[in-house]
Design a protein around this nucleic acid. Sequence first.
DNA 1: AGCACCTGCAACCCGGGAGTTGCGCATGAA
DNA 2: TTCATGCGCAACTCCCGGGTTGCAGGTGCT
Lengths: 97, 97
Amino acid sequence: MDVFAALSDPTRREMLRHIADDPSTATELARLFPITRQAVSKHLAALDEAGLVERTSSGREVRYSLRSERLDDVMGWVAEVGGEWDQRLSRLKKRLG
Amino acid sequence: MDVFAALSDPTRREMLRHIADDPSTATELARLFPITRQAVSKHLAALDEAGLVERTSSGREVRYSLRSERLDDVMGWVAEVGGEWDQRLSRLKKRLG
DNA sequence: AGCACCTGCAACCCGGGAGTTGCGCATGAA
DNA sequence: TTCATGCGCAACTCCCGGGTTGCAGGTGCT
């Protein structure tokens, strides 16, 4: 699955956001979301296939953390298509503090 | 349809890219892509619903052009999740020339 | 008026994505 | 060793998204 397709699902975006500042396992996420662990696992597999997360297995648990490299591709594409990014980027920079 | 879902389809991304520097009609796009005009029309409807294009009808033809506002939302989300954007943005700026 | 062209709507098919349940395996703890 | 916990795989359902064909309406040209 490519990056855009991976980000198209709202649940996946929430998961990624959560993972970003708190690396989690499938079962941990399953407690936070109103879906089954297997459903979570599928989403994580999708994110992994898209290169958006990193799997770190220790013992019997597998913890997922953010891999932000692919997000650069998204930024790049959006920037290419959008155009006039000098102002836009400065605005964004300001918005992010 | 939300923005991310609209961008999840490769055909739609190509169309948007083409529209970005050459506003087109459905039939014009149908000549460039290996799909039917109706399929193109559906894609354009999706892009329109997501707020990514602007419809300008003159006479019997409807021309679609890029609306880049929503792309800011995408950038914003990606930036929020990705983190560490001081370096990333400067790299992107350099990459865009 | 008549014809060609662009568009929109509706019905339909098909594949895949999101979610579930069920089972089996491996690992950690009592 | 026994039991609980975390994962993975497989099969199944359901629904929606991408694409098609067919038809009807509006517009422009001759």
